[in-house]
């Protein structure tokens, strides 16, 4: 403990450090009162910011939100299905290709949307237009910034997926009454991949196109080899591991169970849930740690 009298102002009266500990001054009380709301609701204020920003590209969100399910369900589920249904005999399992592929398209849409929301906005907030440091200069903590992003993306994903699901109903792609669970499952799938991507994006200090690489070398292969368009068992054995580490495979299989009672042992469904939740939570926690380190250097 240093001697307070060594102050540059010599005789200036220093407050007793014990007083500081108890925050007994008017200034301190006022600060504690003002800090109470941000401490509790800070993450929601960050989410509010995100929604306001999303509104600035709201048209894009709407067009893709409605256009994508329409195009994909029609192209894959109706167009491609005429070939597949004839040749692969999926009717044997009691469902057509549309029903088989729709949950995969749903989860895939969640994955793509999460990729968008957790990549560039994160890099932007840390680096190009450092709004995160602006929030942190106010009462918002680094962890709350991450939480706020998570809240906003969950909402955006749930909305996107719900619209998608609506189209699936219209196309007659949801025979099971538990089908609505696919909305939750797809949202979780998006978060499982998204929070990990957020963590990675948070570590990027010099942008040399890493995010574009992630999209091409990770997101695209995941979409193709996660049992989305054809069962994982159709892949050669040396590629099947992709499915096991892919949140998209776990999500899609689970969504299939929900929408048409895809035959799968119950333990496997439990594994899907555990993997997805673990990924989402791990990415979230990792992002919070990086944020704390990066913003409070």
């Amino acid at each position: 403990m240093s001697d307070p009298r060594r102050s540059s102002r010599g005789g200036a009266a220093y407050r007793d450090p014990v007083v500081t500990e108890n925050a007994a001054t008017d200034d301190a009380r006022q600060a504690l009162a003002a800090g109470a709301r941000p401490r509790r609701f800070g993450a929601w204020y960050v989410a509010e910011h995100r929604f306001r920003v999303m509104r600035s590209y709201g048209q894009t969100i709407l067009v893709t939100g409605f256009g994508e399910p329409l195009i994909y369900l029609y192209a894959m589920g109706v167009g491609l299905a005429t070939l597949v249904d004839q040749n692969l005999g999926l009717e044997a399992q009691g469902v057509g290709y549309l029903v088989y592929v729709a949950p995969a398209l749903l989860c895939s849409a969640a994955l793509t949307t999460a990729t968008i929301e957790f990549s560039y906005p994160v890099l932007l907030g840390y680096k190009w237009n450092p709004t995160f440091s602006g929030m942190h200069a106010g009462p918002i903590s680094p962890g709350q910034i991450v939480d706020g992003l998570v809240i906003s993306v969950v909402v955006r994903l749930a909305a996107t997926v719900a619209i998608y699901f609506g189209f699936m109903l219209l196309f007659g792609a949801v025979p099971s009454p538990t089908g609505w669970l696919a909305i939750v499952i797809a949202t979780l799938t998006g978060m499982a991949f998204g929070t990990l991507l957020m963590a990675y994006a948070s570590t990027i200090r010099d942008d040399t196109g890493q995010l574009a690489m992630v999209e091409r070398l990770i997101v695209l292969p995941l979409t193709l080899f996660s049992g989305t368009f054809f069962p994982l068992s159709e892949l050669p054995w040396f590629l099947q591991w992709i499915g096991w580490i892919s949140p998209l495979w776990h999500g899609t299989e689970l969504a299939r169970v929900a929408t048409f009672g895809y035959p799968e042992p119950i333990w496997l469904s439990v594994v899907h849930v555990v993997v997805l939740v673990t990924m989402a939570v791990a990415g979230w926690a990792w992002s919070r740690r990086i944020a704390a380190r990066r913003l409070a250097s």
Partner: peptide, 28 residues
Amino acid sequence: LGLDPDRNGPDIRSQLGVVPQADNLDTE
């Protein structure tokens, strides 16, 4: 303001106005 920034960061920051060296206005 009588508080330790290590422990009461958010409370202290709720009472500060900060104008950083590099503008970090939200361009979106």
